[in-house]
């Protein structure tokens, strides 16, 4: 149900705002995202720098960095996730109450980064938990982190509450806890959560003829 724009601006001049309930709900949620204080490696220093006084993150609503996952909305995975640490990351994500979001900050959290060829490095945290925003960079500048928070805010603003367009957390049947991997003899068991992540198709197998046809 759309409101006439002219009527809207007339009412605004009188101090009366007309907006869908969903927009109001999302505005409240997006303007007060509290991150979890979860820095793993070098990107954590840029996260602290972006929360410091020069690139103040608090003006975007991230007022306090919560120490406990039970009180946080957002987990910024900043830094390399190693296989030794991966079960704890998934456990922390499970402990966060819905609605929860995850930002993978830095090349290491997205896909292993410069340490990709490593026996202890998890090639991206999105192997086990769903990630909402990825920030490339090594380390990404504080402005990039702010841009990511703004992108997340836009994502939250576009989430609907109606039945068939609901986000994951609004639906009681959807899982909000993800299985925690365990330490195996050579690798984590399982190496990835195939419901959350599929290995990418090798694009080099696409032949030139197929490209020309398309």
């Amino acid at each position: 149900m759309a409101v006439d724009e002219g009527l809207k601006s007339e009412l605004q001049k009188q101090g009366i705002f007309v907006l869908p309930f969903e927009q109001l709900y999302n505005w409240g949620r997006k303007s007060s995202i509290w991150p979890l204080q979860f820095g793993l490696a070098c990107c954590a220093i840029e996260m602290i720098a972006s929360a410091a006084s020069r690139y103040d993150l608090a003006r975007f609503g991230a007022e306090v960095f919560r120490a406990t996952p039970r009180q946080a909305d957002l987990m910024i995975v900043a830094g390399t996730v190693t296989k030794k640490m991966a079960p704890q990351v998934v456990r922390l994500y499970n402990q966060m109450p819905e609605p929860k979001y995850c930002i993978a900050m830095g090349a290491c959290a997205i896909s292993g980064g410069p340490f990709k060829d490593g026996y202890n490095v998890l090639k991206g945290i999105d192997r086990y938990i769903p990630v909402d925003v990825h920030i490339p960079g090594c380390p990404p500048r504080p402005e990039a982190l702010i841009h990511a928070i703004m992108t997340l805010q836009r994502k939250i603003a576009n989430q609907h509450l109606e039945k068939n367009q609901r986000p994951r957390w609004y639906d009681k049947n959807e899982a909000s806890e993800y299985p925690i991997p365990s330490y195996g003899g050579h690798d984590l068991q399982p190496p990835a959560n195939l419901e959350v992540w599929q290995p990418p198709r090798n694009y080099r197998d696409v032949t030139l003829d197929e490209v020309k046809k398309a």
Binding site: S111, Y119, K123, H186, D187, P191, A192, P200
Partner: peptide
């Protein structure tokens, strides 16, 4: 395993 040995084979999860 003992990973830094020269004859170590890494696990099969390289992308």
């Amino acid at each position: 395993d003992f990973p830094m040995r020269k004859d170590y084979t890494p696990p099969a999860d390289y992308e």
